[in-house]
Amino acid sequence: MDQKTVLITGCSSGIGLSLAVHIANDEKKRFMVYATMRNLSKGEALVEAAGRTLGKTLEIKQMDVCDENSIKACVDSIPERRIDILISNAGVGLIGPIECQSIEEMKAVMDTNFFGMVRLLKEILPDMKKRKSGHIVVISSVMGIQGILFNDIYAASKFAVEGFCESLAVQALRFNLNITLIEPGPVVTEFERKVFEEGLKTDLSKADKVTADMFTNIYLKNYKQIFDTFGQTAEDIAEHTFKIITVESPPFRHQTNSLYTPMTTLKYADPNGDLPIDIFYKMVFEHDKVFNASLNFLKLLRWRSRKSFTLDKPKA
């Protein structure tokens, strides 16, 4: 069986690093992984984690998804420019009141999370169409389905990703291509730690007192507990993604966290969209004790989310 070429972005740490190592360690050696990152000087962790796979089933390459020339140079360096599986993972985060964020900061999030993916596809999709084979996997988020308090811009970038891919998926079928959106909930990584630390430094002077209080004493205060309750590891996401790329008929969407799924399901329960907003509002502002008790209860059930999952479609 010929090896499939896998190109992954954002591999210096977190989900990208785990994805690269997990796929490169496939016992059947079905994949040749090209793990990319913007700054190669930050590749030490990946080199160490790659171990014996480095130079065999894993190679590290430079790529900046915000630079079309960098993307082209990387793709051109791959034998025959053949990429069988593209995993678009590179991303940045931003939390806080929008009054306290600059338009430039917002543009940077969109440029990496959304336009970074678009640049990749502009370079890689035409070759996949010619071959009429390929799998595009995008690491999205449950926040591409449902917005979360003080994640306005990050959620907007993931909503854009989801809308783009949902539109493209119809065209992709014509060329025998698969598109899959991987939708994690909270994931405990260096990425999330940095986002939280930057959130702590937010200058709230431009926000009104109520908003500043909401961000500091509700959002940031509950941040750690939510991650302790719902948080998965980068390796969890890598395991889910590996199963997605090895099944015969991969799904268009796959949520990795069964504990979080009931919260995203609320969006589809009410066509008006009022239900999830009303429930989240009441949980945060009117029933905060119940909310905290629920988090503690769910923490006891975390073992359920670690059970092996199935890709079977739900019964009607």
Rank of each mutant, 00 (worst) to 15 (best):
R174L: 10
M143C: 07
M128D: 04
P184Y: 14
N176G: 00
V170T: 08
E190R: 05
A160D: 04
Q171L: 10
F175A: 06
G163H: 05
F150V: 02
K130P: 00
N222F: 06
M214S: 10
V142K: 09
Y219S: 05
Q225K: 15
V187Y: 13
V188A: 12
S133G: 02
I218N: 07
L173I: 06
D213I: 06
T216R: 11
P126W: 09
M214A: 03
E183F: 05
K194Q: 15
C165L: 12
S141E: 10
V188N: 13
N151V: 01
I124S: 05
S157K: 07
I145G: 00
Q146C: 01
S140P: 11
E166R: 11
N176M: 04
A172F: 11
E123F: 00
E198Y: 09
E183A: 08
V187F: 11
R131M: 03
E190N: 12
V161G: 13
G147E: 11
V137L: 04
G116S: 12
F164A: 06
A156S: 15
R131F: 02
S205C: 09
L200K: 12
K224R: 03
K206L: 05
E197M: 08
K221F: 10
A169D: 09
I148E: 09
M128C: 05
Q225M: 09
F191H: 13
F164M: 14
A207S: 15
A169N: 10
K130Y: 01
D152I: 12
L125E: 03
K194M: 11
K129C: 08
Q171Y: 03
A156G: 15
V137T: 06
T189H: 14
Q146F: 12
F175E: 02
L121Q: 07
H135K: 03
K194W: 01
V138D: 06
S157Q: 04
M143S: 12
T112R: 15
E192Q: 08
L125M: 04
K201L: 08
P126A: 14
E162S: 10
A172R: 05
V118R: 02
G199H: 07
R174Q: 15
A169Y: 02
K122A: 05
I179Q: 10
T211L: 09
T211E: 10
A156I: 13
G116T: 14
D127P: 01
A212T: 03
T180Q: 10
N176P: 00
I218H: 04
Y219P: 01
T189G: 10
E123H: 05
V195Y: 02
G199T: 09
L181Y: 12
L204K: 03
Q171D: 14
R119C: 07
M214K: 12
H135A: 05
N222C: 13
G163M: 12
D127F: 11
N217F: 08
L181P: 08
M117A: 04
S133A: 08
M128K: 11
K130M: 02
V188H: 06
Y223F: 15
Y154A: 08
M117S: 00
D203G: 03
I124Q: 00
K129A: 02
N222L: 13
K129W: 03
E197W: 03
M128V: 09
I218R: 14
A155V: 04
S167P: 00
E162G: 03
K194S: 15
L121W: 05
V137A: 05
K130S: 07
H135S: 07
G185L: 02
K122N: 01
L173Y: 00
Q146T: 13
N151M: 13
